[in-house]
Computed example of a mutant assay.
Amino acid sequence: MTSQTITATASGTWKLGDRTVHRIGFGAMRLPQQGEAFAPEADSRDRDQAIGVLRRAVELGVNHIDTAAFYFSPLRSANELINRALAPYPDDLVIATKVGPGRDPSGAWLPHATPQQLRGQVEENLRQLGRDHLDVVNLRIVGTDSLADRFGALAELRDAGLIRHLGLSNIHLHHLAEAQAIAPVVCVQNMYGIGASSEQEELLRQCGEQRVAFVPFYSIAGTRRTAGAPAEDSSGVQAFARARGVSAAQVRLAWTLHRGAHVLAIPGTGDVDHLAQNVAAGSLRLSQDEVDELASLRPDDAEG
């Protein structure tokens, strides 16, 4: 699959609130360091390399970048790399960030923020990105408890003009309705990919019915999660990729995009060649039979 001249426009568009984005975006989680994200022993990525990847992403038409203040290595911060690489920001660029989790300077995880602490996290993202407002802020949660107090706190910051749109991350089915009763939700970020569970499929379906963007994470990495894409993908995905003359990662990305017009992909990488391949996946067209064939892979077949 030739990827050099394929841009993110090939993936189509969707609206995040009042902002139109290409359906292939970029995830900044892996940008600050090489190897597994958040691993304390991993080396920080070369600064110029990271900046080059971000600038190339925008050149390739990417206008949706996912980040967070807790994406950092000992020497690099994803938000500050984005600021250095892309400010002053293009008018069409949408930067989505996450709040809820936090890390101390050593990288250790902190308890998730209380409603009162969320404003400080929003302000830290604003400072690092050099913005006077945030395009999209996703509340990331853990567990099944009510998110009303925390989402309500973000809704107040939205009313104050610090946030333009709100989203959710890592939620269960009931959380979407709970949040929608407080303020509009423009996107849901959840783990999703080939071999997804029935609950994940139902959440994707409900988002589509409500015209809420569904933004899968770990769609390439699968169970390896922050460790990134597997060196040897599953036999089922590999066989399919060979038959189409593409990479397994491109198959996984294309498959998620075919699950609904409201699905937005945010693959991350620190390599410009991998970036081009990820963007090119937005032009890969699958028949309904091929989509169904890949969906039928059992979780162990899908994850390798």
Rank of each mutant, 00 (worst) to 15 (best):
S235L: 14
D135G: 05
T114C: 04
P299N: 04
G245C: 14
Y192D: 00
R259Y: 04
R131H: 06
L166C: 02
T269Y: 04
G236M: 09
M191A: 11
S106E: 11
R119C: 03
F26C: 05
Q180Y: 03
R76Y: 01
A261T: 08
D273T: 14
M29R: 11
V188Y: 09
V99H: 02
L264D: 00
V122P: 14
A181M: 13
L154A: 01
I220G: 00
H64N: 03
L162W: 10
R56Y: 09
T114H: 10
G270R: 15
A183M: 10
Q250H: 05
F217Y: 13
G282M: 00
T13F: 08
G52I: 14
A254Q: 00
D66I: 13
T97W: 10
R30I: 06
S296C: 01
S11T: 13
W14F: 15
G120H: 11
P267A: 03
E80I: 13
A177H: 11
V94D: 00
A221F: 06
F72L: 03
T67W: 15
E36Y: 06
V185F: 11
V53C: 12
T9G: 05
R55V: 03
L203P: 01
F214Y: 12
G245P: 01
F151I: 04
E124D: 13
E41R: 11
D135N: 05
G282K: 01
E290F: 08
R298Q: 06
P74I: 08
Q189G: 13
R211H: 08
A243C: 12
Y192T: 00
D135Y: 10
S73W: 03
T7C: 08
K98M: 05
L154T: 04
L54M: 09
V137F: 08
F70T: 08
G130M: 08
T5V: 05
F38Y: 12
A295W: 00
A248K: 07
I24Y: 01
E232W: 06
I65C: 06
R140I: 04
D48T: 10
A265D: 02
I266C: 07
V21S: 10
L264G: 03
V53E: 07
T2Q: 14
R225N: 02
G17P: 05
L54T: 03
V21L: 08
R298M: 02
D104I: 15
G107Q: 15
R244F: 04
S235R: 12
R19K: 10
E80A: 14
L154E: 06
T67V: 12
G161H: 00
P105I: 14
T2M: 09
